[in-house]
Structure formats: C-alpha cells, structure tokens
Design a protein around this nucleic acid. Structure first.
Length: 429
RNA sequence: GGAGAGAUGGCCGAGUGGUCGAAGGCACUCCCCUGCUAAGGGAGCAUGCGGUCAAAAACUGCAUCGAGGGUUCGAAUCCCUCUCUCUCCGCCA
C-alpha cells in the first residue's frame, strides 16, 4: 500500500514510477475519487459535529430539567440526511482503499528499469560450476535411480506437483533445513520461530497476498464462516507478528526465521517445470524476515541477502545474485535480489532465494510501527528472503554432488546432520 | 462438544445512558528539587483519518473502549450476532 499523502502531493511521480513496473495507474480516476471523498467527508463530518453538539446541549438542558422536544426534533432531522451521507462516505472510502490495495510498491531508484526477467542484472557470482567427466543426470533421474524419490505414489495420494522422499533423501532434506536454521540462529542473529501454517485473510492482506493474489493460495473452509489460508511462505506469519504493534526503537532490528512448508496453487504456471521438484504445491523453506528502522532497510537488504548466500557458500553450491528489474519484481517489493543456484543438468542458474525490501509497503497495510526519536509512531520497514528454499537446495545438492555411479556425495557441512553418512547410495527397499 | 467469566490507552485498571477519549496507578518525556541506590514535586503523554496549509508547526473536526449490526436526540455503558481469551467438564497428540 502506498502513502496516500504521496499520491495527493506528487501524483505525477507515482504515476511515472509505477509505469516502470508496467502498472498503469489511472490518475484521473484517483483524482475524481479523491474529490468525491473530500466533498462527502467534509459534509458528513460537519453534520456529525452538529449532531454531537446538539446532543450534548440536550443532555445539559435535561440536567436542568428544561424541555428538549424542539432540540430533539432538530437532531432527528440532522440524522435523516446523515445516515445517507455516512453510507456514501463508507462507500467511497472502501472504493478508495480497494483501489490503493491494488497498487504495487514503488521501485527503489537503484532498481534497473525493465520489462521482463531478461532485463534483470547480474551483480555477482560465487563458485565455479564443476566439470563432469560423465553424463550428468538431473535430480529426478538421480532420485528415482536411487529409489528414494517417488512421484508416482505421491500423485496417487495427492495428484500432480507433489512428491515423496524416502530414506537418506528424506534425511538430506531434513538435514538441509536443520543446517539452515542453525546457521541463521547461531551465526546471523535470527530468532527461530514456530508459526501457524494456516492464517486468516487479514494476515494475508498485511503482507500483500490478498486481495490481489487469492488465486495463488490454497484455503480451507472454517466451520460457520470465513476460511483459513495455507501459507504460501513463512514471510506471511513472521512479518505479521508485528501487525498492529507499536514497537520501541530499541526493539529494532528484529530478525526472525522459521522453517515451514509452503503451499502454492501455482495457478498460471501450467506446463512450467512439470518435471521434478522445482515447482511443487508443497515445499519447505527456511525464511528470513527483518523488521527494521526505515533508515537501515537497504543495508539490511544487503545483509539479509548475504545471509542467504552464506548457506550456498557453505554448501559449496555455485550461484549468482541478480537484481530484479522493475518489471519482474513482486508487487510488494521496492528492491529484490534473486539468488540463483547452478543446476548442471539444466546447464543454467535457477532461483533458490528471493530477498526483498518492502520498505513501508507491508508496514502500512499492517500498521506496524515503532516510536521514533520524537516518540511519534512511524512505520517500520520490512524485509524478507528465502534462506533458502529447501527443496531446491536439495535438487542443487543432488545434481552438483552426483557421482558417476549415480550416487550422491553429502556436502561436508551436512554430514553431521546425516549421522555421518557421506554418500547417498541405493538403499534396499 | 457442554457450562461459566471476560475483552477499556504502551501496561495495569476504574467507569452500567449525557459535560467520557475515558479516573487512578505503572512506564515514558520535560522541568524543579535532591549528593545516592524502585526518593519527592510539577507538567506532558492513545491511534487513525480529515479541514485550514505547498509542507512543518499550530488550530480544529470526525471516528475508534475486541468486531459488526441495532435501540436512542445521545452508547465504553442497553440489545443482537460474531471473534478471541480464561476457568471447569468431556475428548484428544
């Protein structure tokens, strides 16, 4: 959600900056709604004021035992027009809010302008892709070859885009998330959180998934009314921890992390990544969230991105960091770095983490604030990033650490989490 | 699932139809006093959204006492619905 004050004072700038993201902002419509709002609001509040004064006078008159019939009729007359005014005020305010909730965030000045992912800019690389003296297998061939990855049974249970891991592969998956959590809590100053996997609509509105992206979510009906949504990322529950909270400045920065499953309907991705574990309805992720002072949010973005990178460095996985262009960023973000890990079977880099500074976009929706130097409530800035996607990390480990015989070596940092297992081989069923 | 109690400002807590955005306390900020270890005195101190205004400050209006609706000239206070919290019973990992 954007600052409505900014819209009122600098509409042209907002329009121009949103245009760089391919968002067509109907300024004329906004102006018209604002004018209508102002007109109705002033009129309504004037009437309310009159009513309040008159009612107060009635109370005072009654206390003195005076007759108040005339005054009561007067207020009744005010109320006749007031009811309609209040209704139209509610209506225009709801329409304005819906209009504003639809807006994406303004991109930061340092974000390259572009239309699609082809305009994203690489900022750095780590590691050198390994050269193989045998034909590389992709993670599906590896996993299924070892008898540890089973899409067929998963589809019997749940349909497409689900998977079953077995034995040491399942353990590798667990080892990865444990390793990530330990690293972030021990070395990067994050507090581990266990959070709900089902949340209400207000929570999703806070982080920006609703109302616009409902189609991407799974939901479950809740008895008499309403529903719960399955979280598409732990960003949602972690960030909403501070919804409707006024923090002390000393509380900042807050660094939170959680390992959760994530559920995405993947509507609109038909035909994309149908093979393998890359795009599933259910996947695990260790998420990083920071709640920070507005002055420090860009430093925090660099830091948070570094925390995610550290995981890949320790795992010895080659990657690159790219900055998303204006046209490719998520709606809530002002600036996003994607980290892409090297997948030898695809001979390409694939996204494994996305780290964003949302500035006050989510904070404004959530009314997440802190008391600043002047003791005034001020919106915090929120950041989030994958630290990192567990399933995709496992894919990367499988492919990058595969051996000629179809077994997979376990990266050194994971071996303690694997009970000393150094090579994942074929296991008896 | 059954029965009961409750939800008020950053926190605690008073307030059952009118001058209540709300006593008192704690915390916090400023000032005064005081050489000392939870000392005393005074003042200030909710949030959101408007209007005057380019903006800040200032002034001012409206809304908000869990949420929504209703009764009333007037609702924190009365009525209805819902949500949440707590206690007891049942069930359960």
């Amino acid at each position: 959600m954007l600052d409505i004050q900014l819209l009122r004072t600098d509409l042209d700038q907002v329009e121009a900056r949103l245009a760089t993201r391919g968002f067509k902002f109907d300024a004329g419509r906004f102006r018209a709604m604002e004018e209508e709002r102002k007109h109705i609001q002033v009129r309504t509040q004037t009437l309310q004021s009159e009513r309040n004064q008159a009612s107060k006078a009635i109370g005072q008159a009654k206390a003195k035992g005076e007759d108040t019939h005339v005054q009561m009729q007067e207020v009744a007359r005010i109320n006749e027009t007031l009811a309609a005014d209040e209704a139209s005020l509610n209506d225009i305010q709801a329409r304005l809010e819906a209009f504003l909730l639809d807006f994406p965030n303004l991109p930061h000045a340092s974000v390259p302008v572009g239309k699609s992912e082809s305009d994203n800019v690489e900022v750095r690389r780590f590691g050198t892709p390994r050269t193989f003296d045998f034909e590389v297998k992709d993670h599906v061939a590896l996993g299924e070859g070892l008898g540890l990855l089973d899409f067929e049974t998963a589809s019997k249970l749940s349909g497409a885009r689900f998977s079953i891991l077995k034995g040491d592969l399942s353990r590798l998956h667990r080892a990865l998330s444990q390793f990530m959590l330990d690293t972030h809590t021990r070395d990067h100053g994050y507090t581990e959180m266990y959070v709900p996997y089902m949340v209400n609509a207000e929570t999703l509105r806070g982080t920006g998934q609703l109302p616009k992206f409902e189609a991407d979510l799974f939901s479950v009906p809740r008895g008499d009314q309403g529903k719960h949504y399955l979280i598409p990322t732990a960003e949602v529950p972690l960030t909403n921890v501070v919804r409707d909270v006024i923090l002390q400045e000393a509380d900042l920065p807050m660094r939170l992390t959680a390992h959760t499953p994530c559920f995405r309907s993947e509507a609109g991705s038909y035909g994309k990544d149908v093979r393998g574990l890359i795009r599933q309805h259910q996947f695990d992720k260790v998420e990083l969230v920071q709640i920070v002072h507005p002055q420090h949010s860009y430093a925090a973005l660099e830091e948070l991105t570094g925390h995610a990178e550290k995981i890949l460095q320790l795992l010895g996985l080659p990657y690159r960091v790219i900055v998303l262009c204006t046209g490719d960023m998520g709606a809530g973000s002002s600036k996003t770095y994607d980290i892409e890990v090297w997948l030898p079977a695809q001979n390409t880099f694939r996204e494994i983490s996305s780290c964003s500074n949302c500035e006050a976009f989510q904070a404004r929706r959530m009314q997440a604030r802190f008391r600043n130097e002047k003791n005034k409530p001020e919106l915090v800035h929120t950041l989030n990033g994958s630290g990192v996607a567990v399933g995709r990390a496992m894919v990367a480990v499988l492919e990058n650490y595969q051996n000629a015989d179809g077994t997979v070596s376990v990266p050194a940092v994971l071996q303690p989490y694997m009970g000393g297992v150094t090579v994942i081989g074929r296991q008896p069923a």
